[in-house]
Simulated assay, not measured.
Amino acid sequence: MAEPSAATQSPSISSSSSGAEPSAPGGGGSPGACPALGTKSCSSSCADSFVSSSSSQPVSLFSTSQVHDLIFWRDVKKTGFVFGTTLIMLLSLAAFSVISVVSYLILALLSVTISFRIYKSVIQAVQKSEEGHPFKAYLDVDITLSSEAFHNYMNAAMVHINRALKLIIRLFLVEDLVDSLKLAVFMWLMTYVGAVFNGITLLILAELLVFSVPIVYEKYKTQIDHYVGIARDQTKSIAEVQPRPPGFR
């Protein structure tokens, strides 16, 4: 069963070295054996092609296109479900403790699954059918996380963690004075924001903005870009006009 996949790879490898060396006599070798290349060059070419194909698709739980389709309401049912559940979760956390919210969510889920399980059992007993467990299709799904996939996710996460650690060290140890002062000013402004809003309220506002601003911008993109361009030009013209110092002639 490996011959079709190998056959699809051999033309790209042999085409890069066409005319270099004749193929093996008889032409009876396996299609993926790289007959026109030596052992060293064949292995390096296969390795390069594997690295390029794997690096072109970074490991991530959600792709950029999926997030884009979600916030732009491409699938109304999916976006509505995500938006509704997360908003209800944040509103619940704003009114109750985390332990209460998690407990009620688990109880609600168990109530649904147990009720459905009992209902299907009664229906099967009345109809004398042998359909089996109603969740058997989901119980048979293999959700085991392999060690290779776990290491891939951890490596992808470590890239972002190391980048964040370098940024924190650079800002707090004042590698660049301007950047550290910007952080200090931003944190000083956030003290006033924290006096008015708490963290859950900010998360609720952020979710409302994430799920509303992109769709509004997509609908009125021309008008928004026009006014943003005017504001940018005005700001640029004001910044270019520098006041003269006192006593300057």
Results as ranks from 00 to 15, higher is better:
Y217Q: 02
P243Y: 03
I230G: 01
R244V: 15
S212Y: 05
Y227H: 14
V216T: 08
P243D: 04
K219N: 05
E218M: 13
Y220N: 08
F211A: 00
I215A: 06
I238A: 15
I230L: 15
Q234D: 13
K221S: 13
Y227Q: 09
H226P: 00
E240M: 05
Y220A: 03
V241R: 14
F211H: 01
Y227G: 02
A231G: 09
Y220T: 03
Y220G: 01
Y220I: 01
Y217F: 10
H226L: 11
Y227M: 10
A231Y: 12
Q242I: 13
Q223A: 11
A239T: 08
H226R: 12
R244T: 14
H226I: 04
E240I: 02
V213P: 00
I230N: 03
I224Q: 03
S237H: 11
S212N: 13
Y217L: 08
E218P: 00
K236C: 06
K236Q: 10
R244L: 14
P243V: 05
R232P: 00
Y220E: 07
V216I: 12
P214F: 01
G229N: 10
T235F: 13
Y220S: 03
P214Q: 02
P214V: 01
I224W: 05
K236H: 09
P245D: 04
S212K: 04
E218Y: 14
V216L: 11
Q242C: 04
E240W: 02
Y217H: 06
A239G: 06
R232G: 06
D225V: 03
Q242S: 07
S212G: 04
Y220W: 09
V228Q: 05
Q223T: 12
R232Y: 04
Q234S: 09
I215V: 13
E218R: 15
Q223I: 11
R244H: 12
I230V: 15
T235E: 07
K219Y: 09
D233R: 09
Y217E: 04
D233T: 08
V241P: 00
V213D: 03
H226E: 11
K221Q: 11
F211N: 00
Y227F: 15
Y217C: 03
Q242A: 09
A239D: 09
Q223W: 05
V241N: 14
E218D: 13
Q242R: 09
I230A: 05
